[in-house]
Design a protein around this nucleic acid. Sequence first.
DNA 1: TTGAAAGCGCTAACAC
DNA 2: GTGTTAGCGCTTTCAA
Lengths: 337, 337
Amino acid sequence: MTKRQITIKDIAKALSISPSTVSRSLADHPDISRETKSLVLAYAKEHKYKPNPLATSLRTNQNKTIGVILPEVVHFFFSTVLSGIEDEAEKEGFRILVSHTREEYKKEVRAAQAMLEARVSGVLASVAKSTEKYDHFQELIDNDIPLVFFDRICRGILTDRVVVDDYNGVCSAVNYLIETGCRRVAFFGSPSQLAISNNRRMGYEDALIRNRIAVDPELIIICDNYGDALEMTARMLSLPNPPDAFFAVNDETAVGILNKAKALGYRVPEDISVCGFTNNSICELSEPTLTSVDQHGYEVGAMAMRLLLDHINGKREDCKVVSKIIKTKLIRRQTTR
Amino acid sequence: MTKRQITIKDIAKALSISPSTVSRSLADHPDISRETKSLVLAYAKEHKYKPNPLATSLRTNQNKTIGVILPEVVHFFFSTVLSGIEDEAEKEGFRILVSHTREEYKKEVRAAQAMLEARVSGVLASVAKSTEKYDHFQELIDNDIPLVFFDRICRGILTDRVVVDDYNGVCSAVNYLIETGCRRVAFFGSPSQLAISNNRRMGYEDALIRNRIAVDPELIIICDNYGDALEMTARMLSLPNPPDAFFAVNDETAVGILNKAKALGYRVPEDISVCGFTNNSICELSEPTLTSVDQHGYEVGAMAMRLLLDHINGKREDCKVVSKIIKTKLIRRQTTR
DNA sequence: TTGAAAGCGCTAACAC
DNA sequence: GTGTTAGCGCTTTCAA
C-alpha cells in the first residue's frame, strides 16, 4: 500500500492538460485562465498534492533551507537564539538545518562542509571556543553561500554579524554595583581568546575608571564555572583587602560565588553583591534570586536571520558589511542592593 | 566570480569519459577499472567535486535527512536527547531537520506537514503537552514515512517507541527515601494527561505500598514549577502531620521545595529529604546539591534514532512494534540522607 | 491561453 | 569495463 506522492504529471493527466499548465496554475501565473487555475487547485487540494521541494530546488538551483552552526544546544543563550532564528525563518518559509559543534573545531569544519554539500541558501554561525582557523567559513563565502555570524564572530571573515553589546552590558552592570555602594568589585572572566571575553573585561575596567576606582589586578581572575567559582571565591574573600562585590561572566559562576559566600557566613547583598551574565533560568531559582544581564538571545537570532534573508533575497548590495549590536539589559534581583 | 559547483558532467568532459563512468567510479562500482577510478577520484578531489544531494535524492527517491519534532529545545532533557540523535545519525551520514513545537499543538501539526513536504526519510517525535489529536502523525505513517516516538509517545499510533522508565525511576527513588528513614513522602506531580505523569505517580504509590506505608492523598499534589513549589511546600509543611521527604517530578520544582524548606528553618537532609527528577545541571548548583533521577536522555535519543535507521534500512519487518525502555539512575547527592 | 520540449545533476537498466 | 539513454519532478523558453 505504498502511496506514491502525487505529482504534477498526475494532475495533468487527470485533467487532460499539460504539466506546464499545471505548474503555472500552481504558481498563480497571470497567463492562465481563472477556470483552469481553479480546476487545478481544486484537484491538487483534493488529492493532497505536495510539491517536491527537491525537484524545485534542483531546477531553480536554490533551496529553502538555512544552515545554523552553533556551539552548544544545551545552553540557555544559544537555545534562545535558536528560537529567534526559527521564528524569523518560518515567516519566509525557510527550513533550518541545525548543526551543533559542541565547541569542537573539527565538528565545526564538518558542519560547514555539510552545509556546502546540502547546498543551503545561507548559513548562520557562532564559532566554537576551540576554533582558531577560519578556512571552512571562508570556503562557504567562496562558494557564494551568504554567511552571518552571531555572538561569537570571527574577525578575519568579512560578513554581516550580530553581536551582543557585551561591553555596555558589563559596564552598566558594574556601574550599578558601584552606584549601590560597592567599592571593590571582583571580575570572574572567561579564558577564551574570543573577542567577547575582551569586550567584557574592558566593560568592567571602564566602569571602574569612569567611577575613579583603581583597577586592581588581584580582583580580576579567570574563572567561568561553578566548581572553580567555589574555590576562587573563598580565596578571594580571604585577601587582606577583600571584594565587596562580584561580577561573573556567566550565571553558573555567579551562583558558585553566591553559594560560597553564603557558606562562609557573608550576607548577600548586605555584605556582598553578586551579578551574573546571561539571565539564565537559574537566576530565579537561586536563593536569593540572582541579578544578571539579559543578552536578548531571541533578538540576536531573529536579527541574524533577518540580515541573512535580506542577503538571500538580494535586498542588499554585497559591498557593505553590517554589524548589528543588540542591547543588553540589567535584570535587578536580590543579590544586589 | 560566481563559482558554479562542479558536476559529474564536467568531470566526464574533462576526462573524455562518460558521466556514467564517473558516477560509477565515485560510487566505487566493482565493474570500473582501477585506473579509471583513481583518475576520476583524483580529478574530483582536486576540483572539490561535491555530489548534489538534491539530484541524488530526486533520482533515488530517498534522502538522507531525518526530521525531529520535539517540544522544547530550551530544556535539559530534550537537548540531551538531541545530542544522542545527532551522534547516531551522523554515523550513517544522515542530516537532522529539527522542528520545535514549544508545546503547541498547532506548531506540531505544521512541523509534521513540513516533514512530509521535505520528504524526509523518517521522523522522530515527542508529542507536545497540548496535543490531543494525532492525525498529523497518522498522516506521516500513511505516507510511508517511518515514525518513532521518544519519551512522550502517543498511544493511538502504532509505531516503535523509546521511553524512559519513569515508573521504576520514581519507584526506586521513593524507595530510597524510605530506606533512609523517611516515613511521610510527599509527591509533587505534573498535571498533564500524558502517560508519563501517570507512570510516575504509580511508581510513587507502589513504592509506598511495597514498604507498607499508606498512601495519603494529602501528600499528593499537582505542582511542577518553582514558583508554585515555594507556596505549596510552605502549605504542606504546616499540615498537622507534615512530610519528612519530598519527591518532585522535575528539578526546578525540587529546588523550590528545597529553598522554601531552608527558608522555614528546616535542615536538609536532616529534617527533610528532597529528590528531583531529570538530573539537570542545577542539581550541582543548588545548596546542598540535589539528589535526582537521571533519565539518560542521550541514550533515549541514540536508541530512537537506531530504531528509525533500522526501519529505513529495511532491517526490520514492519509488522512488529518495538518498545524500548531506557533505565533511569538515581544520582545521590546532599539533599537525601 | 496553453502545450511541447529541454534540462537541472544524478543513477541504472540495457547495450556493446 | 564503459557508453547510451531514459527519467526522477519540476520550471521555463519557445512556439502555437
